[in-house]
Design a protein around this nucleic acid. Structure first.
Lengths: 110, 110
DNA sequence: TTTAAATGATACCAAAAGGTATTATAAAAG
DNA sequence: CTTTTATAATACCTTTTGGTATCATTTAAA
């Protein structure tokens, strides 16, 4: 697990969506695929990238592969970002409202 | 500024290194380039990506372009990750030591 | 045991990413 | 004005990325 593997995994919007989905419940490849307009093979590739970055783990149940969120690696990214916190902490309150506005725009664009 | 633009900007190790450098002091393209084994043009491209993600701003001083860290966008990424915090908070203490070990390996691999 | 379901594996393709080299501009210095 | 410095812009190249299609493999079900 490297910082690079984690940030690379987070760089794709499909993969970030998959993480959000897996935060709610474990899912098979087929179940994850239902939520996207792409082939199962493409989704499988994204899941492989997430697994390489160790953001998810997989357990095999019969013929199914059940994907499970592994938050461990996310801590790495979170801590990397935290090292910049001194630059924004003192004006965080001022910025908070602006960020909320940005985030609502975001949902339409991502 | 979108979540996508921010995570895309963070996906490259050179760009993350640039952010760390700019956290210490504002720098021109030439100054940033001195720290990397690539052409100024390549560094300029990375700076453009960082600017598109609004992780840096640029002010023009004569013929120089001075790059400046803008932590605002980093908050967006930080908050996105924080939404997963409930998955790791209760076992954070257990994981902390393992993460420190991972990070020291990291510095060699990134 | 045949068949259907879930996934794995491979080859292939187009677009994007990361890089170089080259040429053009704009501003400071002599 | 000429020259040097700092950067911009463009064309080009190679590798990676995100996707498809196809075929093989494994497991559950009829």
């Amino acid at each position: 697990m490297t910082t690079q593997a984690v940030f690379r995994a987070l760089a794709d919007p499909t993969r970030r969506d998959i993480l959000v989905m897996l935060a709610r419940e474990d899912m098979t490849i087929a179940e994850v695929s239902e939520h996207f307009d792409m082939t199962r093979a493409a989704v499988k590739k994204h899941l492989s990238v997430l697994q390489e970055g160790e953001l998810i783990s997989v357990r095999i149940e019969g013929r199914a592969r059940v994907n499970h969120l592994e938050p461990h690696a996310l801590i790495l990214a979170s801590e990397w970002l935290d090292s910049f916190r001194r630059f924004w902490d003192d004006r965080f309150a001022d910025l908070h409202q602006a960020i909320e506005a940005e985030k609502s725009k975001d949902n339409k664009n991502d």
